[in-house]
Amino acid sequence: MSELIDILLTTGFWAATIRIVSPLIFGTLGELICERAGVLNLGIEGIMTVGAMSGWMWVYQGGDLWGGVLFAASMGALFGLLHATFTVHLCLSQHVTGIGITLFASSLSYFVYRMLLPSATTPPKIEPFQNYPIPLLSDIPMVGEALFNQSPLTYLALLCVPIVWYMLHRTPIGLAVRMAGENPVAVEAQGINVLAVRTGAVMVGSALMAVGGAFITMSWFDAFYFGMVNGRGWICVALVIFASWKPGKALLGALLFAGLEAMQVRAQLSSGTVIPYQFFLMLPYVMSILAMIVMARKAKYPQALLVPFRRGERV
């Protein structure tokens, strides 16, 4: 127990938590936007893989880092458009479409990677985002080092939380998005195109997911490995439920999970061989299931989640 407290007191633990939380924030916010508009996006795992591959590949082919992030985001939006075409416009099963997109998007990423780098045995590396210490703030002991000496993409992730909250809860666009997920008929009655709102929300959400994937290869690590996303997308889907579809709570949930992951890496080292490492690696997945159980009774699903909207059809 005292070992755990020791870990909690190190700056390294908090810095790692903030680093690890970034892809979870992007992914959870992305999924949250889709679900708020009434679309469950199970393509997230594949879309994060697409982001991880395309952003990295952009830089590897000589592009600059921010160009890579933008490229990853637009690739994500493209897959979002595919998802929306199927689920929003053709009213197909959101479950099956999502799984199909995950299968398609991740295998396509691996295919493209192998096509462009046919003979790479050890994954080649890029020069990733460097930490950018914010002047003055980063001098604060502990907090400064953990929070204000991070990669620019991490700052972007943290900034996205208030931005998404503001957009969803304080602007007409956000109102339309939330209404599309609660009562699409009412949106239509306002003269707003439900299908367009949902399509837009899924595209923006998917772009965020892809940036989350890009963070893994462009800031956290510097290479693209197979199976790199490793279920993070599914964890994000669980986190959205845990956060009851609220951006602020999503940040809290993501922090909890990132802390857990940072903790388990360190606990593995200190526990030696007493507890096998596989059990530490299981923690995030088991915790995700537990989080869904805890929130199950309180979960206030958007009323029109999973319900397709057909214009002009009687309800």
Partner: peptide
């Protein structure tokens, strides 16, 4: 409890793989 089965079944895949990894190592 009305917990969505898609996510729980997906997450259990990862748990099972780690369990197998532990047992065979």
């Amino acid at each position: 409890l009305k917990v969505d089965e898609v996510v729980t079944t997906l997450l259990l895949n990862f748990v099972m793989l780690l369990m197998v990894s532990y047992l065979i190592e």
